[in-house]
Design a protein around this nucleic acid. Structure first.
Length: 553
RNA sequence: GCGCCCGUAGCUCAGCGGAUAGAGCAGGUGCCUUCUAAGCACUUGGUCGCAGGUUCGAGUCCUGCCGGGCGCGCCA
């Protein structure tokens, strides 16, 4: 029996007692059935009686007693205890737990997938770093977390479109182009220009692709450097991210918004809604009525649109493309943006709480010799995605970034990360998968196969370590849905570490394959199913994080 | 000054209002002639920043302090 099935049983029990008139409450939709930390508290526990006590006007333990009696009659339930303030501790019947292994193996890649978000179309924007330099360590965090989140949401049944907003317009690009030009001409880079080594490389590439460029008028040169320089940078960013396992459905060019007149249209739309006004020669959006700190300029006094005007146009474009929900991941250095963004959504007539979701994540620092290294795209002094991958590999990089809560600022110790030690839990998890793969290989060599689901007696799995493992495997679907709901991919990583540990303890305590000239028994088969089920979950879980599940290490 | 995030073991961090607060690393003691020791068992280590409040119950929610990070442009 899976925890989901037990949850349904509990709900049915509540409904039955209510039906009989002994309990006067509304049957709750969200009954919590969880795995107790203390093994003496049975296989599963629910606090439903504690929840219902107040609305029912009865003591928690009295409610619990009613439900316990009802539950005891259910098939697959061996024992129900009322404990503490009113918890229901459920012990499943012999063999009921073992079915979890069969279910996981049978479902395979589908184990952990649900339809809780079915029908939702959402647009997830992440990274969106300016195309004026390579992908930095800070952006790498959003690549790892954003991609994992996309996979999580998809696992919960949502339709997710991954999007990268390319800021290929504006003064930043102008500065970038002038920097490229300066380097190409052998001049010093302007004070406010870009100075990494890559600037020279990109400049050389542009010159090579455009013979005679440096003999043309300077204005023309800048235009060419802007056009081709940005194109080269975007191509570089794209291939870097693909190498990192992150693919986008759309690279959206800001410039197309400018060229299509979308900004003017956006301003007009907001004006129709009655939230645009003129002051000091500029055009403003009255965002303060929707909770923003101050009103925001859409068109400057010099007639140029602001970055915010492009944001307005961009948001409206996403909505016009049919997305129910626009999700944007931003670094904490952009947290000041939330207020105006929410306000623009409200000003456009949408609901800022349902149509827009902004996820703010804290920054990543590189620490070297105990001192944080400042990262700035202008100076050449920054750590790149490629540096991180070169040092620890894609798997470790993705895992390490995805296993921390985004609310937490991460300090990455350069020495620790360039070392290859088991400080990194990804090896612990991957090792469990490799270990299982080895057992299954050896089983195949002995001519042992899993066989059909009907042929395995999962009820033979009665060892404490086996039960621990079964319960852990049973948790996976819930871990996925809750991680998706909470936008917290790191929960999957933490869960996998627990699962790996649980497997290692099982492996240590329970021999799977026959030794020497022993014969295989039905227990051998049952344990092989348990191993296979664990491998399924490890693969699916690592897959959510975009990390490989190696068969050998 | 205002807004957001953080403060949990020596270190890095988990912890969806539930029972005796966890993991990894670091320290200590053990376990490989047969399935991967990148593992396992045992052990040391806590005023969950401080003070109030909410309730059957608070590391978790609310308020106020203290300490640290980020942000507050007609920049992008």
């Amino acid at each position: 029996m899976t925890p989901e099935q037990l949850r349904d049983l509990v709900r049915t029990a509540v409904a039955a007692v209510v039906e009989r008139g002994t309990l006067a409450v509304a049957v709750p939709d969200d009954v919590l059935v969880e795995r107790p930390k203390n093994p003496e508290h049975g296989d599963y526990a629910t606090n439903v009686a504690l929840r219902l006590a107040k609305p029912a006007g009865m003591p928690p333990r009295a409610v619990a007693d009613l439900l316990a009696e009802e539950l005891r009659a259910q098939p697959g339930v061996a024992r129900v205890d009322v404990a503490g303030p009113g918890f229901l501790n459920v012990t499943l019947a012999q063999g009921a737990l073992g079915q979890i292994a069969v279910r996981a193996v049978t479902a395979g890649e589908g184990y952990g997938r649900t339809d809780t978000l079915a029908g939702q179309r959402l647009n997830l924007e992440f990274v969106s770093a300016n195309p004026t330099g390579p992908v930095t360590l800070g952006s790498t965090r959003w690549a790892a977390v954003g991609d994992a989140l996309a996979r999580l949401l998809e696992s919960s049944g949502a339709e997710v479109s991954r999007e990268y907003y390319v800021n290929d317009a504006g003064a930043q690009i102008e500065r970038f182009a002038r920097s490229l030009q300066a380097v190409a001409l052998g001049r010093p880079v302007p004070e406010d220009g870009y100075q990494g080594d890559y600037v020279g490389e990109v400049a050389a590439r542009v010159v090579a692709d455009e013979p005679g460029l440096l003999e043309r008028p300077e204005d023309e040169q800048v235009a060419v450097f802007a056009e081709r320089g940005v194109a080269a940078m975007v191509a570089d960013i794209r291939s870097t991210l693909e190498g990192f396992g992150v693919r986008y459905d759309t690279f959206f060019s800001e410039r197309t918004l400018h060229e299509s007149g979308a900004l003017e249209k956006a301003v007009a739309t907001l004006r129709e809604q009655g939230h645009v006004f003129e002051a000091d020669g500029a055009v403003w959006l009255r965002t303060t009525v929707f909770g923003d700190d101050k009103d925001r300029v859409l068109v400057k006094a010099d007639g140029e649109p602001t970055y915010f005007a492009a944001d307005c146009a961009y948001y409206l474009d996403k909505r016009a493309r049919g997305f129910d929900r626009v999700v944007i991941m931003l670094g904490a250095d952009h947290s000041g943006y939330v207020g105006r963004y929410k306000a623009l959504v409200a000003a456009s007539g949408d609901d800022p709480d349902t149509h827009l979701e902004i996820l703010i994540g804290q920054l990543v620092n590189l620490v070297r010799d105990g001192e944080p290294v400042r990262m700035s795209k202008r100076k050449g002094n920054f750590v790149l995605l490629t540096d991180l991958v070169d040092a620890v590999g894609t798997d470790a990089a993705r895992y390490a970034l995805a296993r921390a809560s985004v609310d937490q600022t991460i300090d990455i110790d350069a020495d620790l990360w360039s070392r290859r030690t088991n400080d990194n839990p990804v090896f612990y998890v991957q090792y469990a998968h490799a270990r299982i793969s080895s057992v299954l290989r050896n089983a195949a060599d002995l001519g042992l196969a899993l066989g059909e689901a009907g042929d395995v007696d999962a009820g033979l799995l009665v060892h404490e370590r086996e039960n621990d493992l079964l319960r852990a495997i049973g948790e996976f679907p819930r871990v996925v849905t809750s991680a998706a709901e909470l936008r917290a991919p790191h929960r999957v990583a933490r869960y996998l570490e627990e699962l790996a540990g649980t497997y290692h303890r099982f492996y240590d305590a329970c021999r799977v394959l026959p030794r020497g000239d022993e014969e295989a028994t039905p227990l051998t088969t049952a344990r092989l199913w348990l191993c296979a089920a664990t491998a399924v979950v490890l693969r699916n879980g690592l897959g959510v994080l975009g990390v490989s599940a190696p068969e050998r290490m």
